[in-house]
Design a protein around this nucleic acid. Sequence first.
DNA 1: ATGACTCCCAGTGGGAGA
Length: 254
Amino acid sequence: MKLATWNVNSLAVRLPQLLDWLCTNPVDAIVLQETKLADDKFPRAEIEGAGWQVAWHGQRTYNGVALLARTPIDAVQKNIPGFDDEQARVIAASVAGLRIVGAYFPNGQAPDSDKFVYKMRWLDALREWLRAELAAHPRLVLLGDFNVAPEDRDVYDPVAWAGQIHCTPQEREQFRQLLGLGLVDAFRLFEQPPKSWTWWDYRNLAFRKNQGLRIDHVLVSEALRPAVRACTIDKAPRRNERPSDHAPVVVEID
DNA sequence: ATGACTCCCAGTGGGAGA
């Protein structure tokens, strides 16, 4: 089966592009980030009309996540249990024998900001929840916009970005601790083109110059690792008119 | 270079994103 993750940066704006992409990229499920829609504004009819099961957890203006699947979506969990959060950042559910955790990690803004403190608290809570979730669901995939570039090879200019948001030692340590739970970066299971990014700044012709970061990830549990067949970034939607600043990432699991 | 672009809510600008 194929799973995807895509930060659409406003589902209201990107819905036609999403439905187009799903027509030409036959995935079994996709998680979305930054839908930026209150729950009562979610385009349920359009998505169900295209043949999808769907669950969502939204808020107006910021954040918001959703899960679309071709088969039934069970045991939906919104946000991190026990972590009181005003922000809609997580949707987890069971689909076709997999536990899928779709997440929009906090941006963090700047290493000396309150938002960075929140990012660290959020990551601590995510990790401790996932520890239990993995024990209960060995076949687990964590995917989404992590807002962390795990290594220098995930950054177009690691010198300029050293210590900057997404590249701080604290964020990278948090990423490693997620791997320490028994998760594997599916993208790095395969030989990949150098300078593979999932996000390019809207400004300064960054996409044309391929100046980006790899901050959207798919982590699979050890139980799934032998079944992973491919993991790729699809840059094509970034070339659309009015694109999201993120590209989808697709993983194929037997 | 406190920039650049895009989205949102607002309301003739400003916050946030990354």
